[in-house]
Structure formats: structure tokens, C-alpha cells
């Protein structure tokens, strides 16, 4: 199939950037979205033009590197899917596809579709850890974990930190990301000692990075490739309020 692509091109952080239109021919429906961009880039390289810069790594939906806003939806319209796992069979011949980077002040564009997500790292550094004594590995099952807590913690831990929640949020809030980290540690026994202070530190870092405030629109959950549920944010709020008392 043949597609018209409108892609955000920006030479560097200081460049103003612009949308540029490209034609790609002979796209196979079995290609992933990133493979379709690879085809475009090969053609651009052969023509002596600058290829479109985009982030990617594992290309199997688990690393969280890839991410772009496709026709106004983070990771495209397919639910619970990263951009690399989005396949061209979901598009029709002759479609026009608009591709933009994540838009948020704490995610400055480095080049084209690549954004700097270091702000997420700093949120993790603020409290996304547990302080454990070093030494020999403890015996398995020495700390009992209720099955429900283990399952919910694992679901939250599937967050790959891609940033789609921020990109989709009308407020540019990072609440779902932060809440996923708060939840996955806060539900386990090992995470209890720092539970309240962790939520407080991470929320304060999130605000300091310039992310917006959560108004519970639910847009984040809808685009999350891992389907992190909205109740993670309620749990973060509860922990935060406890720490603020």
C-alpha cells in the first residue's frame, strides 16, 4: 500500500521544527510501524537526505523506547500496543498518517521524533526504590506476599516508562507513570517502610519537573501499552495524603 506521511522534523533542541510530507510506496501490511519508517529512512539515506530520527530498541513491546503520536493518539489507535507492535495492516492504502513526538515541556525534543525522558529517571531517583540491607540473598518465601498484592504489584511493574501517559494527558501529567512505580513497590512488604515518604518524594519531583496536574480524565490508561489501571493514581494519592499529614 501507499501512504502519505506528515512527520515532525526538528534538527535539534533549538530548531523550531516543522511538519514535512513524505510519500512511502509498497508498504507491506505485515510491516510494523517502525519498519515502515525504516523503509522511508532507507530511501531518504539513498537520496542523500537526513533520515527521520526516532527512538527504538527491543522492537518487541517491552523496552519502552519507541513512542510517537500517530494521528493524534499516543502509540496509534490500537489499544495496549507500543508503536513497534503496531502493524501496517491497521492502515488503509492511500491513508495520510501524521506522526509527532510526545509533546510535554519535561520531554524536550532532541531531534525529530526523539524526546529526552530524563525527567522520568529523576522521578524514579526521588523514591522509586527500596532500601534493603546488602548481604546474601534471602531464602525464597521468607517474606510472605499475599497473591492479590503480588498480582497487582506485578501489573503495575509492567510499566515500561514509555511516556505515552504524559503524551496523551490533556494536562501533560505524569501521574500514571509515577503511580505505577509507587504502586508496584508500595503493595509489597519490602516497600512498606518507605511507602508514604516514597509517594511524597516522587510526586514532588514530578511537580518540580513541570508535569501538569491530574484531573482524572483517564486518557493515560486508555493509551497505556501495558494497561496500567487508573486506581494506581488513587493509591498514589492516598499514600501522598498520608505522608502530608
Amino acid at each position: 500500500m501507499n501512504l502519505t506521511l506528515k512527520i515532525w522534523r526538528q534538527n535539534g533542541p533549538e530548531d523550531r521544527g516543522r511538519m514535512v510530507t513524505y510519500q512511502v510506496e509498497d508498504v507491506s501490511p505485515d510491516m510494523s510501524f517502525l519498519e515502515m519508517l525504516d523503509v522511508l529512512n532507507e530511501r531518504l539515506t539513498l537520496a542523500g537526505e537526513e533520515p527521520v530520527a526516532f527512538d527504538h530498541d527491543c522492537r518487541e513491546g517491552i523496552c519502552g523506547m519507541c513512542g510517537m503520536v500517530i494521528n493524534g493518539v499516543a502509540h496509534g489507535e490500537q489499544r495496549a500496543t507500543t508503536t513497534c507492535q503496531l502493524h501496517m495492516r491497521h492502515f488503509k492504502d492511500g491513508d495520510t498518517v501524521t506522526i509527532e513526538p510526545w509533546r510535554a515541556a519535561p520531554f524536550p525534543v532532541i531531534k525529530d521524533l526523539v524526546v529526552d525522558r530524563s525527567s522520568f529517571d529523576r522521578i524514579i531517583q526521588a523514591g522509586g526504590f527500596i532500601s534493603v540491607p546488602t548481604g546474601a540473598a534471602p531464602d525464597a518465601h521468607s517474606v510472605p506476599v499475599p497473591k492479590d498484592a503480588a498480582d497487582a504489584a506485578f501489573d503495575a511493574a509492567t510499566c515500561i516508562g514509555c511516556g505515552a501517559c504524559v503524551a496523551a494527558c490533556p494536562n501533560g501529567s505524569a501521574s500514571l507513570f509515577t503511580a505505577a512505580k509507587v504502586t508496584h513497590l508500595g503493595l509489597l512488604p519490602q516497600g512498606q517502610p518507605e511507602r508514604a515518604s516514597r509517594a511524597k518524594a516522587m510526586v514532588e519531583q514530578m511537580d518540580a519537573e513541570g508535569f501538569g496536574g491530574c484531573t482524572n480524565t483517564g486518557e493515560c490508561t486508555a493509551v497505556c501499552p501495558k494497561g496500567i489501571p487508573l486506581d494506581a493514581i488513587a493509591r498514589m494519592n492516598a499514600d501522598y495524603l498520608k505522608a502530608s499529614k
Binding site: K6, W8, M19, V69, N71, G72, T98, E100, R103, A104, A105, P106, P170, N171, G172, S173, G210, F211, G212, G213
Partner: peptide
């Protein structure tokens, strides 16, 4: 919210 998204989406 406005400060967090200075550049709006085209679509």
C-alpha cells in the same frame, strides 16, 4: 497544563 504542553499537537 498549559505550561506542561507549550507546543500543541498538529492533529
Amino acid at each position: 497544563a498549559a505550561r506542561a504542553r507549550p507546543v500543541r499537537y498538529a492533529v
